[in-house]
Design a binder for these strands. Structure first.
Lengths: 211, 211
DNA sequence: GACGTGAGAATGAACGTTCATTATGATGCT
DNA sequence: AGCATCATAATGAACGTTCATTCTCACGTC
């Protein structure tokens, strides 16, 4: 029994150490980006020796992977928590509140970096894509459930809002004076309008205005 | 006279060389990103020796700067060309067509990279911001001129569309199968609706639904 | 004394940049 | 035309540094 406890303690100690390193990595990456952050920077920030980091992560890239993974897991956990505490619409609003109205610049910078990294690192791309898929499934499902208008297309609505959300993140990352609160409000307005069928339908991609 | 011609020729030769290097840099950066591209990679792609690049650019960073600058200049030139050839609304539609309906993944990847770089490189940040400002001025001005509804707020409309545009770029960069044409169509629909006052007004940022 | 944990020096490859040297080709002189 | 001169263009090996990773050794705990 004490053996099992010991094992559990070791597990948790290791996990804690990993979390600690990931926290340090987050600070470093926000400040200097992934590629300009050296293992020595990371070690200093984490308050340990460079060599020791390798006891918890296989490589520098594994740290980034770990960060992307944690990001995704946290998102899922947050969704789960919000859904447990209330209705689905409430969860949706809280997610918007949390991820957009209260988005810090650090969050935004990190996410843009992750996207940039995902464009050529297959591992990161897979993690990002998985997160995107999960979000899309969750949202379209909720949209379908909450739609009050018969012509509300949950998939199209998600496509619209998804771009809006990504754009807000970029804008927040680019300007330290950008206020995400109005953007979050617009996002919500757009969502409500879409659910209630008050958004204009989109015609064919190309061609002129077919009156 | 022949002296002047010679000077002009030298100028143009240098400029051509710079353009050539920037083209190569574009390829390299799209493939591997700025930080993973070595000067030797760049030299190979440009078909010249590493040392020679330094005759045209002060440093590796200057190449990125040059790329950001060229990007901005091209955008301005395109706007100027479209405006010369037709009405302002036509120019706007053509810009959307060009930058979004026909956006290649390479374009998108490069732009996301530039944004990521702008979050910590002040030089790049300044260039990106300048481009953003120019675009914002241009668009709000046009929106103000084209609005058919009295309650159309050009600045708010731009904020909405700007996020939408940035988000489309990110989505395009993240997925090689993403089709930007429908997104461009949505963008246009959103714009038209905004100009005609058919978009729901946004309430205060925080708080519940004030019915 | 075996083992988990950590520090910090050591390693070696990679990379941006420099520089001595060479090619190119235009210009002026005979 | 033939040749010397010279500026510009280009090369690519070498340099010094940086950095991810590994090695060695020490400290504590069972």
């Amino acid at each position: 029994m004490s053996g099992a406890v010991a094992v559990a303690e070791v597990r948790s100690a290791q996990a804690q150490r990993r979390e600690h390193i990931l926290d340090a990595a987050e600070s470093c990456f926000v400040r200097n980006g992934f590629h300009r952050t050296t293992m020595q920077d990371l070690a200093r920030e984490a308050g340990m020796s460079p060599g020791n980091i390798y006891r918890y992560f296989e490589s520098k890239e594994a740290v980034v992977r770990g960060l992307a993974e944690r990001d995704r897991e946290r998102g899922m956990a947050l969704v789960a928590e919000f859904e447990r505490a209330g209705d689905r619409r409430g969860a949706l609003l809280r997610i918007i509140e949390h991820y957009f109205a209260h988005m810090t610049r650090e969050d935004a910078v990190l996410r843009v970096d992750l996207w940039s990294e995902a464009t050529r690192n297959p591992d990161i791309a897979a993690l990002v894509e998985q997160g995107e898929d999960e979000a899309r499934c969750w949202m379209t499902e909720i949209f379908a459930a909450l739609a009050t208008a018969p012509d509300c297309d949950p998939v199209a609505l998600h496509a619209l809002l998804d771009a809006q959300m990504k754009g807000i993140v970029v804008a927040r990352a680019l300007s330290s004076t950008y206020d995400p609160a109005p953007a979050a409000a617009r996002l919500r307005t757009l969502m409500d309008a879409g659910l209630e069928g008050r958004l204009p339908a989109t015609a064919r991609p190309l061609g002129e205005t077919a009156s």
